[in-house]
């Protein structure tokens, strides 16, 4: 099994954190943002996990879920729902917001983009009595969401208003050694600056899509 990862790609945080947290043994190879790892995909993607049976996983969330799955933590309705929400709703907003912060210096507008998804997360966490999203213990959902939000929420000048439940949860997940180590490895203590090269190569226009015609 082999994990291909590129420098300064924010999606690397969730995969590295899952790897460390589950303790799965896996070779890691650094690739450039342009390197084509998956033979059938036109656009270069990373992170990518080469499975023992020779198949490629090019979805970061599926990689994380796989690592938890082989460590005995199966997907549930609750983890599935958070992962689907992260991929369809949170991730596009995060990417757009990162572009505004890192490339355009528009912090105010970047925070506005995050308002709705963070409000939803705040409401959901506020209703729960458990310290984590789906249970008493950390799950793949916590790691995936925490990693997606890390570059933005770890920046003290990123002002998204009062979010007591989100802040409490964000600190609890961030206290895990696996999460800290993954964030440091990708961001190198430089915050969103470390993501600049990646963001320049991945335009945020994809995130401002019209609603699905099939819905």
């Amino acid at each position: 099994m082999k994990l291909y990862i590129s420098d300064g790609n924010p999606q690397g945080v969730k995969v590295l954190a899952s790897l460390e947290l589950t303790g799965v043994k896996c070779e890691i190879e650094a690739v450039s943002h342009e390197e084509k790892v998956v033979p059938y995909l036109s656009d270069p993607r990373s992170p990518v996990l080469l499975l023992p049976d020779g198949q490629h996983l090019f979805s970061p969330n599926s990689i994380c879920q796989y690592l938890f799955d082989i460590s005995g933590q199966k997907a549930t309705d609750a983890t599935n729902q958070w992962l689907e929400w992260e991929a369809t709703t949170l991730q596009p907003a995060v990417l757009q917001s990162l572009h505004m912060v890192a490339l355009q210096g528009k912090r105010g507008e970047a925070a506005a983009v995050m308002k709705e998804p963070l409000k939803w997360l705040e409401q959901s966490l506020g209703k729960k009595n458990s310290p984590f999203l789906t249970a008493e213990a950390v799950s793949v959902a916590d790691v995936v969401l925490w990693a997606a939000l890390y570059p933005l929420l770890s920046d003290s000048s990123f002002d998204v208003g009062e979010l007591p439940s989100v802040r409490g949860w964000f600190e609890r997940v961030g206290d895990l050694h696996a999460c800290q180590a993954a964030a440091n490895r990708v961001l190198k203590g430089k915050g969103v600056e470390a993501l600049k090269t990646f963001l320049q190569k991945h335009p945020a226009s994809q995130t401002q899509r019209r609603d699905s015609p099939t819905n």
């Binding site: 499975l51 049976d53 090019f58 979805s59 599926s62 796989y66 799955d69």
Partner: peptide, 10 residues
């Protein structure tokens, strides 16, 4: 299998 579940999920 875990591999197949991940591919389906993807």
């Amino acid at each position: 299998s875990a591999e197949q579940r991940a591919v389906v999920q993807q």
